[in-house]
Structure formats: C-alpha cells, structure tokens
C-alpha cells in the first residue's frame, strides 16, 4: 500500500517536472497545421500523384525545387514526418526489403497522404491564404516548434 503511494508520488513528480517545459513549447491548436506540414502535404500529394507514394529525400528534393531553397535539414524533415504519421495525416510503411535489395540500396520509408491529411490541407489552405510575404518559412530555417 505504502509502495503504491510512493510510486504514484514519483509518477506525479516526474510528470510534473515536464510541465514547465511543456508550457514553454508552442502548442498546436487541434486540427491546425504548421507551415512545414502544409508544405509537406502539398509536395507529398504532388509526388503521390506521380509515384504512388513518397520518401524522405524525394520530399526534400521536391520542397527545395519549389522555392529554390536548400534541402530541408534531416532533423526538421524526419521529425515532421514522424509527427504527421503519428497524428494520422500521413500513412508510413517500410518498403519491401526484396525490392530495395534488388536495386542495391537501403530500403525507403514510404509515406502516403491519408484522407484525413487531405482534408486538413484543404482546411489549412482555406483558412490561411498563403502568400510568399506572409508565410514564415520555418522549414528553411531548419527549426520547428512542436
């Protein structure tokens, strides 16, 4: 009984220790997208239309070719992709190892924009008219806040 109380107290202390950090972090309103997520969904849908799915480096190339910027940094790109896959706006799966092996390269993690992702993109585009001057290009700076 006493051990249980100690355990609960320890859990409360540990979770509580995160609260100041969580409080400082920019929080996303439910159903909204970060600028980089909008970029990823737009590029992802374009790649998906031609290739069926897309992978990290193909996405970085596409994002770079759209505005002539440098390739998106590893940290920003893969952090955003994993977050989007977790929230269900992207569907992620590993490529069949046999096909990667036949081409003599490491297997790719393939992504597809889900129906929920498409809806979120349409909503984001309707809510914020994206102009070059008004949209902060967080992706180019290599930093996200989630």
């Amino acid at each position: 009984m006493r051990d249980d109380r100690v355990q609960v107290l320890a859990e409360v202390l540990i979770i509580g220790s995160y609260l100041p950090i969580v409080g400082r972090m920019a929080r996303r309103r439910p159903g909204t997208l970060f600028p980089i997520e909008v970029d990823i969904l737009e590029s992802g849908l374009a790649l998906q239309a031609s290739e069926g799915s897309f992978y990290g480096f193909a996405l970085a190339k596409h994002l770079s070719s759209r505005d002539g910027s440098a390739l998106t940094s590893h940290g920003t790109l893969y952090k955003a992709l994993s977050r989007m896959a977790e929230s269900g706006i992207l569907d992620a799966s590993w490529e069949d190892p046999a096909s990667a092996e036949s081409e003599g390269r490491p297997r790719r993690r393939l992504y597809m924009v889900t129906a929920e992702g498409s809806r979120a993109l349409v909503k984001a585009q309707a809510e914020t008219p994206r102009t070059e001057a008004s949209v902060p290009r967080i992706a180019q700076a290599g930093v996200t806040f989630a």
Binding site: I14, Y18, A70, T72, G75, K79, A141, T144, A146
Partner: peptide, 26 residues
C-alpha cells in the same frame, strides 16, 4: 549542413520521445 541545421529539431524530437518513455515507465 543539413545535419547541423536540423540539430535543434533533433534535440526537441529526442526530448519528446523521452517524455513519452517517461510517461509510459516513470
């Protein structure tokens, strides 16, 4: 260059992942 520019995002990702581990096994 891509690794250096992405380092802050890597660290915040790490923090978020460790927070998940903490909540699962305090």
């Amino acid at each position: 260059g891509r690794a250096v520019r992405g380092a802050p995002a890597d660290l915040t990702w790490r923090h978020a992942q460790r927070r998940k581990v903490a909540l699962a096994d305090p």
